[in-house]
Amino acid sequence: MTSTLLQVESLAKTYPLPGGGRHTAAEDINFTLQPGGALGIVGESGSGKTTVARMLVGLTTPDTGLITVDGRAREPRTPRRRPARLTRAREIQMVFQDPYVSLDPRLTADQCLRSALRLHGRAESLAATLLDQVGLGEREAGARPRHLSGGQRQRLAIARALAVDPRILVLDEAVAALDVSIQAQILRLLDDIRRDTGVALVFVSHDLAVVQHVTDEVLVMRRGRTVEQGPTRRVLTEPSDPYTRLLLASVPGEGWDPADAVAARAALSV
């Protein structure tokens, strides 16, 4: 058994409600991730997936709970001092659904990667390797985000995250908006990177079929809570929770009848 890379214990986040009281966005979230491993977080919109992802990278401060990377506890807030900030960035990087918002519109793909490499004290010449790794060619290297397609921007966002040489990559619905042919290219890319660099993935998605392809472990969330977690294959073939069964019954495929999902929903509410 390899040593644990990421450990998450009793993570929780609540938000105040306008009329008083608090909304539980995430509660009692626990999981571990090995180097090179891949964990999926699935659930419907509003189930708390993104809240967990944002707490991992430090964009949202947890109310309680502990996140450790390589045995070191992550500080709940982004540190002020630059070296500490950079170390923290190298632990976990995040890729969002819409790469547009996270990319500097003024920088070409190549410049974008060079600036990330420079910031983290890595050789700028690695930019070419990274571009190649994510399948971006010479034309794309010289193009600004607005002149790249959605899939190309997503590859660039992944390359930039990798430029930091992170231990863990958190992807929040990173392939959701892409055409399937491009989505498949990115999923293949993630597989390759995982194998070649040993980076571990936290893969947040509402798409069970995609999660099945990418991850070894999965955590099913509903209303901020974990309803089921375990090896992806087992959870998706022999779900023990009725909510997981509902999710599975809702996925279209050969011989699928949407009425099965309605029946599964009915089973859930009794």
């Binding site: 397609s149 899939g151 190309q152 055409d179 399937v180 042919s181 491009i182 989505q183 498949a184 290219q185 999923l187 293949r188 798409d207 069970l208 079929a209 995609v210 099945q212 392809h213 294959r233 998706l236 073939t237 599975l248 996925v251 495929g253």
Partner: peptide, 23 residues
């Protein structure tokens, strides 16, 4: 056929075969 073999399918563990290039 390309679309089908690059669409992840629940319950199938075959590797995805991406269509090269872009739409």
């Amino acid at each position: 056929r390309g679309l089908l073999s690059c669409s992840p399918t629940l319950g199938e563990s075959r590797a995805l075969v991406p269509i090269q290039g872009r739409p």
